Computed example of a mutant assay.
Amino acid sequence: MSVKILIVYYSRNGSTLKMAQQIGRGVASVAGAEAILRTVPEVSTVCEKVADTIPESGATYVSLADLESCDGLALGSPTHFGNMAAPLKHFIDSTGSMWFAGSLSGKPAGVFTSTGSMHGGQETTLLSMMLPLMHHGMLITSLPSNEIALRETSSGGTPYGPSHRAETDSAELSEHEKRLCWVLGVRLANIAQALQAAKE
């Protein structure tokens, strides 16, 4: 059964992108599931103008059409003072028409984050990203408590979603962090397929 899982992220230094790629690998490991990676443009610090609509390199910028056509969503952001980064929030704030139409209602969604320190607000950032998704009527997908990597990790990882403790711009994901990202991708794909099968 074919499903598309949209992975939308903002990444300034590359850590959140690395997580998005691992989630994509989890999605792709499920037969019939496709991972679609998209990012969001920078937001001007002096006005509400955003960057050009087509990036010169890297992932394509997400559109409302991407959201409309997806069967599931993973949303990722670095932690900025215990909250999601402004560029991602700016994009989410543009989805009011989809809220009115109920376009995302009933679709599974998960969240992920990266931060520069152990106590940088990982869990509050994940929770803050869940709130608009719940307003959209999405089905929040967490990490299961019986996942061994969640019990054993000494870096990132929470029941609310994968997290990564970067500390430096070049910090690689730990094996536990990679595993938890992969697990979220698999869960989103499997749930999307189950929901699609229930409709048929």
Rank of each mutant, 00 (worst) to 15 (best):
66 D>N: 01
53 T>P: 14
95 T>K: 11
71 D>C: 08
75 L>R: 07
52 D>H: 15
88 L>Y: 04
77 S>Y: 02
85 A>N: 09
52 D>I: 14
73 L>Q: 07
78 P>M: 02
86 A>Y: 02
87 P>H: 05
83 N>C: 09
74 A>R: 10
91 F>S: 06
79 T>I: 12
79 T>P: 08
74 A>T: 04
78 P>W: 01
52 D>C: 14
50 V>S: 14
53 T>Y: 14
93 D>A: 12
89 K>L: 10
46 V>E: 13
56 E>K: 14
82 G>D: 04
92 I>L: 13
58 G>D: 11
55 P>F: 12
75 L>T: 07
55 P>K: 10
88 L>W: 04
80 H>P: 03
61 Y>W: 04
57 S>M: 07
62 V>G: 01
48 E>D: 15
60 T>V: 07
91 F>H: 06
49 K>N: 15
57 S>I: 09
50 V>A: 14
73 L>T: 06
86 A>T: 06
68 E>T: 08
73 L>C: 07
51 A>E: 10
70 C>E: 01
84 M>F: 01
68 E>V: 00
72 G>V: 00
81 F>Q: 06
65 A>D: 10
92 I>K: 08
76 G>A: 06
66 D>W: 00
49 K>A: 15
63 S>T: 14
50 V>K: 15
68 E>W: 00
76 G>D: 03
87 P>E: 05
84 M>E: 01
49 K>R: 15
50 V>T: 13
95 T>D: 07
81 F>K: 05
80 H>S: 09
54 I>A: 11
46 V>S: 15
57 S>R: 08
55 P>S: 12
53 T>N: 14
70 C>D: 01
92 I>Y: 01
62 V>D: 00
96 G>K: 13
79 T>S: 10
78 P>D: 01
58 G>R: 05
74 A>L: 06
83 N>A: 13
56 E>D: 12
49 K>P: 04
54 I>K: 14
89 K>I: 12
49 K>E: 13
92 I>Q: 05
91 F>C: 06
78 P>I: 08
52 D>K: 15
50 V>H: 12
77 S>G: 02
77 S>C: 05
89 K>P: 01
63 S>P: 00
71 D>M: 08
54 I>L: 13
90 H>G: 02
94 S>G: 12
90 H>D: 09
95 T>L: 09
61 Y>E: 01
74 A>W: 06
81 F>C: 05
79 T>E: 05
46 V>C: 13
96 G>S: 15
48 E>C: 12
90 H>V: 09
95 T>Y: 09
95 T>G: 10
65 A>I: 02
48 E>A: 13
68 E>N: 03
67 L>A: 03
53 T>L: 15
